[in-house]
Amino acid sequence: MSGGVDKATAGVIEQAADWVVRLHEDESMPAGERRAFVAWLRQSPVHVREFLLAEADWLALEGVDAERVTDVEALLADGEANVVPLRGSASAPSVKPRRRYRGIAGLAAAAMVAAVIATYFVFDAQPTESYVTALGEQRSVVLPDGSVVELNTQSRLDVRFDATHRDVDLLAGEALFTVEKDPTRPFRVFSGDVEVQAVGTQFNVYRQKEQTVVTVLEGRVAVQQHAASPAAAPEPVELSVGEQAVVQAEVTLRQSAPSRGKTVAWRQRRLVFEDEPLANVAVEFNRYNAQRIVVEGDALRAREINGVFNADRPEVIVQFVMRSRDVEMIEVPGEEWRLVGPSAPAE
């Protein structure tokens, strides 16, 4: 690399540095400034890149001149020498403050040692590890045993491993588990009162409002619904490849699963619908996007949708539905698309 940076990049670098310094102030930033910062970040990937790099350098600067060869007092005297001719005045005012510096520097050195020691102990494995995804976010996590969990949008997962069990709580959302074989430690996923047990396999668990859907892609799993008393609990259901269990209050329905492609389409942020009522389609899109789809009118809510959609482009399904003459749409940008259709099926 040579020739320095271009003017535009230099400007972004300055803005990023300014934001980083402001973000690191002791008091929290006022809401208006935070808003401005987010707007700035969302303007361009270059802004995001320069912000990340500035954060990295800000951290690295802590370690600069570790041997403390640079004498700050000499620098300040030097600075003053540069300043004096410009101002044309004497440098007397700063004598007193500078004497104070040595004491502060001693304290600061002690504080730094404490900070360095503290950073060494914080990252130890914890008994419960939590993973959360925000609206629209997806991530994959490698668990301590090598099993992989892919988390879909708006999901929460608590992981507790010990010598006898590998337990995972799906507190919300959806996850695809690829479990490493370990016959001595069963792998158990809890979704409310539903327990899914596997040895080495791949399966998807989707925790919905009133039911949990378990789909097996590889191997076998046992699905057990727990009840207040053991006697009331239904028998566990064994599922093998291509099977799916829908567990609702005290009922476990076993059925053949949709295709593998459909089950894991969410990993490519694709939504696949086969004769799915529009009301459910809206729920699925709303899992990924801040601007929500609201469907009104019973007949419209029941209208069946077929097709493959990009989860990040809800406007496509909105346009698709609007091709029907009996549907009206009201958009509140950033909030919702309200689709209003007939309550009764057309004659």
Binding site: V38, R42, V48, R49, L52, L135, G136, Y288, A290
Partner: peptide
């Protein structure tokens, strides 16, 4: 990394980021 982070920041709820 910045490109992907940027895209994800566009997707998530702005108020949560703020």
């Amino acid at each position: 990394l910045a490109q992907e982070t940027y895209l994800r920041l566009l997707r998530v709820d702005e108020e949560a980021v703020i």
